[in-house]
Amino acid sequence: MTDPTGARFGLWQGRTFPGARLVNEPGTLVRNDLVTTKGPRGREFYRSVFGFTLDANPDLPGADFTFLRRPDDHEIGGIFGAGSPPASAWATTFEVADTHASVEKLTTAGGTVTTIDDTPYGRMATVTEPFGTGFTMIARP
């Protein structure tokens, strides 16, 4: 499907398989964030269609970032109103034990690094794997 910002997403009914049971530790998924120039449109869509609550991010006061939470208050990701991404898209972040060691493994395997930054949440690298898929990795304190 495509949301009103132009980002593609999929729907899945888990039935007896609940999805990712292991998250937020090295080698697993941390989060998915919508990166878009149409932040208000994306926030309204995901709030109205999925019932997500929207919470501001006090850790990044200068950024247009909103947490998305399920009705049970579980954080599932966020919406980042970026200045000029080429297109609206969902970005995935994986946790790693050591950002620099993981970047070294990635580049040895043929991947590339766009940025490595220290954030309020840990050291984060934006990378692309050898087949062209971009993602971020973070080592949290």
Rank of each mutant, 00 (worst) to 15 (best):
Q13N: 04
G81M: 10
P18K: 10
E25K: 12
T53M: 05
R70E: 02
V127L: 05
A109P: 08
T16H: 11
T36Y: 02
P18Q: 06
T133C: 14
P40T: 04
P130E: 02
T28D: 09
D72H: 03
P26F: 05
A82C: 07
T53F: 08
G81K: 05
M137W: 07
P85M: 12
G27S: 12
L60Y: 13
D3E: 10
D98A: 08
V96N: 02
P130G: 07
V49W: 02
R123P: 06
P86R: 13
G42F: 07
T5E: 02
G27M: 10
A63M: 13
D118Y: 01
P26H: 00
R47V: 00
D64I: 00
G51I: 01
A89M: 13
P86W: 13
G62E: 15
L29C: 14
L68Q: 03
F135T: 01
Y46N: 04
G14S: 06
K105G: 09
E25N: 01
I76T: 11
T99W: 04
L34Y: 01
P40A: 04
R31F: 06
F131T: 15
G83Q: 15
P58F: 04
M124N: 07
I138A: 00
T53K: 03
P85H: 01
S84P: 05
E25C: 11
D98I: 01
R47D: 07
W12C: 01
G42M: 00
G27P: 10
R21Y: 15
M124D: 08
T37F: 00
I138Y: 07
V23P: 11
M124V: 13
I76W: 00
S48F: 02
A87M: 13
F65C: 03
T133I: 15
R31W: 12
A20R: 15
T128H: 03
A56G: 14
T92K: 03
D118Q: 08
G132Q: 05
A82G: 11
G6E: 03
A91R: 14
G19L: 03
V23H: 12
L106F: 07
V127Y: 02
G77A: 07
E75G: 06
F135D: 01
P85K: 09
R140S: 08
Y121R: 13
I138E: 05
L60R: 13
A87R: 15
T28W: 14
T28F: 14
P130T: 00
P71Q: 11
T53Q: 04
V103L: 05
E95R: 15
T133L: 14
R69G: 01
T93G: 11
T108D: 15
A97K: 10
S48H: 01
N24M: 11
E25S: 03
R21Q: 15
V30Q: 14
K105C: 09
T93F: 04
R123W: 04
G134V: 09
P58E: 08
L68K: 04
D64F: 02
E75S: 07
A97I: 00
P85G: 03
R31T: 15
T36E: 04
G62F: 02
P86A: 14
T93D: 06
R43Q: 02
